[in-house]
């Protein structure tokens, strides 16, 4: 136990909430937001570790994760818009046409 441990625990909790949310929601937009929550939780852990080890690299990783998240959201939301046009809805369970 040291001063960053609570942050790590919080990070783990947020991550788990995000993960469960991803798996239980049907709305594609909600799933995306949950993924953002998970990424954010991971970022928190990165920053905490950066402080614990006295190294800047953790913070730089967060920077890159943010970049990737931004790119992912841009493409993901574009996909959702395209799907919405085709399916008139954002229920991921309707997107099972690969089957059969």
């Amino acid at each position: 136990m040291n001063e960053t441990t609570p942050y790590i625990l919080l990070s783990a909790l947020l991550f788990s909430i995000g993960a469960v949310s991803v798996l239980t929601r049907r709305n594609a937009i909600m799933i995306f937001m949950s993924v953002e929550l998970m990424l954010n939780a991971a970022n928190l852990a990165f920053v905490a570790f950066a402080k614990q080890w006295g190294q800047l690299d953790g913070q730089l990783f967060v920077f890159f994760v943010m970049t990737v998240a931004a790119a992912e959201v841009a493409v993901g939301l574009a996909l959702i818009v395209a799907i919405f046009r085709a399916k008139k809805g954002t229920d991921v369970d309707d997107l099972s046409v690969m089957k059969n």
Partner: peptide
């Protein structure tokens, strides 16, 4: 096994 539901696949990943 292949239900075609993305959420199921996510669950299996977890």
């Amino acid at each position: 096994l292949q239900t075609g539901f993305a959420r199921t696949y996510g669950l299996v990943m977890l």
